[in-house]
Each structure stands twice: as structure tokens, then as C-alpha cells.
């Protein structure tokens, strides 16, 4: 499969599709970091992709794609903040607005952190990887993870936090090694 044409429309060119694809993790990270909530983040991320696809012709290919895409994402995140139900949000509106700008810097570093993380997760024990996948990918509740891995509930929480911090430290170490 390589064609992305939509009958009757001018399809974005290969450079756009490639840039959009490569920016997905950064865009999603930006949306979720700004909103502090996966579901809202996903909503903003999907809206961003639809808008980017429609605006493909406006991208100046002499300029970097990610900053342009993040500017679009910023508008979509602000729209989610404006439209969302207050009782469902994690961040208060003023905090979310502050996080919108804070997260821009973070999103620009996602590529490097992703590469570093890949080296870190390679070294995970299979059991630890399973626990992380159950939590992060499958979204299983802690109690379910505890039951399926024959662990106490408190042990699952401690393990997840320990693994998560350990991976964050590992990312920093790898990045420091690269810049040293």
C-alpha cells in the first residue's frame, strides 16, 4: 500500500505524508501533556491530524514541519479546553493554559527521548514489560494487573512507579551520554 489519494481531491504529497507520520508521537505527546488527560489528549490529537491533512497545501516545505504542526495542535488543544466539560478535566483552565505553552518545548524533544527510551526498554525484564504493557497499552486497572500477575495491589503500584522512574532516569542518562 503506498497510495494516499482521495478521489476527486488533490492529495498531499509524499513529503507531507512522511512528515506527518514522523510527527505523530510528538503531536500526541503535546496534546496529552497540555491537557493531562489521555482521552482529551487523544481527541485533540485526532482533531489536529484532520486539520493538518486539510491544510497540507499551506505547509512551506522549506520550513520544519513539527513547529508548524504544533502550532495547529495548539489551536486544537485550546479548542478542547474551551469546549470540555469542567467536571471531567484534570487541570484547571488556567493551569491547562500554562501547560499548553510549557508542553511546546517538551514536544520538540520527543524524537530524541523516543530513541533513548527504545534503548532503555530493550533491557526490561519480560515480566516488567508485561506489567508496563498491561498498564500503558491495554489500560488494565491495577487490580486486574495484580490478579493476572499474582501480585498484591500495592506491589503493582510500587512496581509501576519504580519502573517508570527508572526509565525516566535511563532516558536522561542516554541523552547525557549523547551530548557528552
Amino acid at each position: 500500500m503506498s497510495s494516499f489519494t482521495e478521489p476527486g481531491q488533490n492529495a498531499p504529497d509524499a513529503a507531507f505524508v512522511l512528515a506527518l507520520t514522523e510527527s505523530q508521537t510528538a503531536l500526541r505527546a503535546y496534546c496529552e501533556a497540555s491537557l493531562g488527560n489521555r482521552e482529551e489528549g487523544k481527541d485533540a490529537w485526532q482533531r489536529t491530524n484532520v486539520v493538518l491533512w486539510r491544510k497540507a497545501g499551506e505547509w512551506d516545505q522549506k520550513k520544519r514541519f513539527l513547529p508548524w504542526a504544533l502550532a495547529v495542535a495548539r489551536y486544537e488543544v485550546l479548542a478542547v479546553i474551551r469546549d470540555r466539560q469542567r467536571d471531567l478535566l484534570v487541570f484547571d483552565e488556567d493551569v491547562a493554559l500554562a501547560m499548553v505553552d510549557e508542553s511546546l518545548h517538551v514536544a520538540e524533544t520527543v524524537g530524541a527521548r523516543r530513541d533513548a527510551l527504545a534503548l532503555c526498554t530493550e533491557k526490561l525484564q519480560p515480566r516488567h514489560r508485561d506489567v508496563l504493557s498491561a498498564h500503558y497499552v491495554l489500560g488494565h486497572p491495577h487490580a486486574e494487573i495484580a490478579a493476572s500477575h499474582r501480585m498484591r495491589l500495592s506491589a503493582v503500584k510500587v512496581l509501576l512507579m519504580r519502573l517508570r522512574r527508572s526509565l525516566a532516569d535511563c532516558i536522561e542518562r542516554r541523552l547525557n551520554e549523547q551530548t557528552a
Partner: peptide, 20 residues
């Protein structure tokens, strides 16, 4: 704290993507 939270949440996405 905002910088740390943004980094933590973004890393959550990166980790989820890596595992997925």
C-alpha cells in the same frame, strides 16, 4: 513542576508508543 509534569506526561506517550 509544570516543566516536570509536561515531561512526565509526554514520556508517558512515548513509553506507550514504544510498548505498543
Amino acid at each position: 513542576a509544570r516543566a516536570a509534569a509536561a515531561q512526565w506526561l509526554a514520556d508517558d506517550v512515548v513509553l506507550t508508543e514504544d510498548l505498543r
